[in-house]
Design a protein around this nucleic acid. Structure first.
Lengths: 198, 198
DNA sequence: ATAATGAATTTAACAGTGTTAATAATATGA
DNA sequence: TCATATTATTAACACTGTTAAATTCATTAT
């Protein structure tokens, strides 16, 4: 019966949207199943008819947020742009997007949501890995002669992990620096790494 | 009355040690004030006579762990060693120490323990910042002619945040790579970054 | 239309959490 | 030894996620 499936999807959507609202307003820590049920207009126990547990619900939220994140990142793509400039744009956008969406960072990198349901893993796997765009444009930098072919791998790792490290510091306020200052650092780091060695 | 102070210190120590044991065995998430009280041989409520809340207790645990961490790191210092080799050792040890002590990473970078009590902030501030050693040996690399003076800052930032980024991935098992593989990456990254540009 | 069956939802309950106020036990000083 | 502080414990509160039982609702058959 396909109606069942449709209705089930809608119910899930109510809870997911309610959860996303609460996440945006109060953060991960202050979310509770009772709040989600309340906001969705149902009892808290109803949630368990549609999700295995609260982690599964949060995983669906994460998948949603990842789609948005990917769209925001890919919007920075500009055909014909110098690959070095393109790379810097990706790096900046990647960092600033997580800065502005700390809940996404929390759910993706910090929180332990356990084994994701297949449906969501697919969704997340189908999207080119967020870091993939970085790698592509670094490869393009090699093609353009900025760097050597055999530098691509190490540089990709370096830039990606550096950005993630800075995100960790900024979002967990271990760093006192403003996001602006860190953004500049990312720019200058990439400029430093991607240039013809004389 | 100085006896009071001494007794209070001892009581704190009982709870701190009990908490550290539980942290080592079960991790941060499974720790509870009732377990700590049990293990320390007191009622759970007694804890609140010595600590403002559980976060304060955890902050004391963190301070303890940081002392050990600093000792482990500084043990890698070897006078007269080539600064590039010294830097690689620091990087490796820094990474592997957190890998082997994920609770330390959790408490230091992930968990939000709120405003630390002054007593502990001092303790942590007195210790040369853990990353400080890295910076020193990078500066030494400049002195030795491996890199230019004006590269020190960007390289220090780059190496530090890269290691933290990798730690985040490994410890939150976002990365499927073994710690061994990541360790090799750290080595090769530092080797790549610290060398005379021809 | 009415009764019966099955599905969806809610209420009640459980075991756990951190924290606080009132009570019990202990140690201190006169 | 008795009165007074100090310290420790018990009981309680307001939460949390989760499950089982009870209830409501919708659909189908008579």
């Amino acid at each position: 019966m396909n109606n069942k499936e449709l209705q089930s999807q809608r119910m899930k959507r109510y809870f997911i949207d309610a959860a996303k609202e609460i996440l945006a307003e109060d953060g991960v820590k202050k979310l509770s199943v009772r709040k989600v049920g309340d906001r969705a207009g149902y009892s808290y126990a109803t949630i368990y008819n549609y999700f295995r547990d609260v982690n599964e619900l949060l995983t669906y939220c994460l998948a949603d947020m990842l789609e948005d994140a990917y769209r925001a990142l890919i919007a920075e793509k500009e055909e014909g742009l110098d690959p070095r400039v393109q790379l810097i744009r990706y790096g900046e956008r990647y960092f600033s997007y997580f800065s502005e969406n700390p809940v996404l960072f929390q759910l993706l990198f910090i929180e332990d949501l356990g084994t994701e349901p297949e449906e969501v893993t697919e969704k997340m796997g189908d999207l080119p890995s967020v870091g993939q765009l970085l790698i592509e444009s670094i490869a393009a930098c090699a093609m353009a002669g900025y760097i050597l072919e055999d530098e691509v791998e190490v540089l990709a790792e370096l830039i990606a992990s550096s950005i993630h490290g800075k995100l960790l510091f900024v979002l967990k306020r271990r760093s006192l620096e403003s996001q602006d200052v860190v953004l500049k650092k990312i720019r200058s780091e990439i400029r430093y790494l991607i240039r013809r060695k004389r």
